[in-house]
């Protein structure tokens, strides 16, 4: 093994641990035994160069891909996600890079697509629009500074607002982990700051987050724990307070072995 996991603070416990995850696509070995440890209530960042296997690992955790080998323990219990729905049933929500929002629908509709609240029974069951609007408002809550009205169509929202809606949806439904894939990749400076504030709010609420990012400053600002991937392996794990941008770059490029 090339790695030594960073010592865990005594007051936090492990919520998710993935070990020896392998995944190949044809002849391409995207993951060659990657591991990841996430502690309850922490922001764990996953960084690495393009093609290092971050996205593949995240997709294994969110049920989009099924790993060829290795095991995932959630809350100490072994889990297998045959589909994204299964991962969701275990409380793992993902904010996808494309946000997975339907632009023609309203904010509250987007919050509830696929898990609508209804009233009435059988053929007479209809959408409980009032309740869904109220709950959407709750879920959006204090997350965003300029929260959009829940009845506005997503098409009318700015990039940052959309991101906030998608994050709020994931955070609202999640009962264990929220995964965010490059949440600020497509945003401008102001919008990025707003989304970072959303992430901070979630962190302060004690939500366990997995953050994939290219931005080292952002990673150091937001995360408690950093996992570095290179060529399908997790090559290092660091506490965010014990590392620097320079060290992370060196770890990513392989200039420094852990």
């Amino acid at each position: 093994m090339t790695t030594t996991p960073a010592p865990a603070p005594a007051d936090t416990d492990v919520l998710l641990s993935a070990t020896g995850i392998t995944k190949s696509f044809g002849g391409v070995h995207a993951l060659r035994g990657a591991h990841l440890t996430m502690r309850r209530g922490e922001v764990t960042a996953l960084i690495g160069d393009n093609g290092a296997g971050k996205s593949t690992l995240v997709r294994c955790l969110s049920g989009i891909h099924q790993p060829d080998g290795g095991e995932i323990l959630l809350d100490g219990k072994k889990v297998h996600f045959a589909s994204p729905l299964k991962a969701r049933e275990h409380g793992i929500e993902t904010v996808q890079q494309n946000l997975a929002l339907v632009e023609d629908l309203t904010v509250w509709q987007n919050f509830f697509i696929g898990r609508e609240l209804t009233k009435g029974v059988g053929p007479f069951s209809m959408l409980d629009r009032k309740k869904m609007k109220a709950q959407s408002l709750d879920m959006l809550g204090d997350l965003a500074v300029n929260i959009p009205p829940v009845t506005s169509r997503v098409r009318r929202l700015s990039g940052g607002q959309r991101q906030a809606v998608s994050i709020a949806r994931a955070a609202g439904w999640s009962t264990s982990i929220v995964i965010m894939d490059e949440p600020t990749a497509a945003l401008g400076v102001q919008e990025t700051a707003r989304v970072e504030n959303v992430i901070k709010t979630l962190r302060d609420k004690g939500v366990t987050l997995l953050l994939i990012s290219h931005n080292f400053d952002q990673v150091l600002r937001l995360s408690d724990h950093v996992a570095v991937m290179r060529r399908g392996l997790t090559v290092a794990e660091r506490r965010a307070t014990d590392t620097s941008g320079d060290e992370l770059v060196a770890l990513i490029t392989g200039a420094k072995e852990s």
Binding site: Q96, A100, D104, L105, Q109, G114, T118
Partner: peptide
């Protein structure tokens, strides 16, 4: 009108038409 605007099924129809990818990602 009722089916389209007041039932989950109708909402799914609009979601699939708006963005099939997003609809599927949300379990439709």
């Amino acid at each position: 009108w009722f089916v389209m605007f007041r039932t989950p099924f109708g909402m799914h129809i609009q979601a699939v038409g708006g963005s099939e990818e997003a609809a599927v990602a949300n379990g439709v």
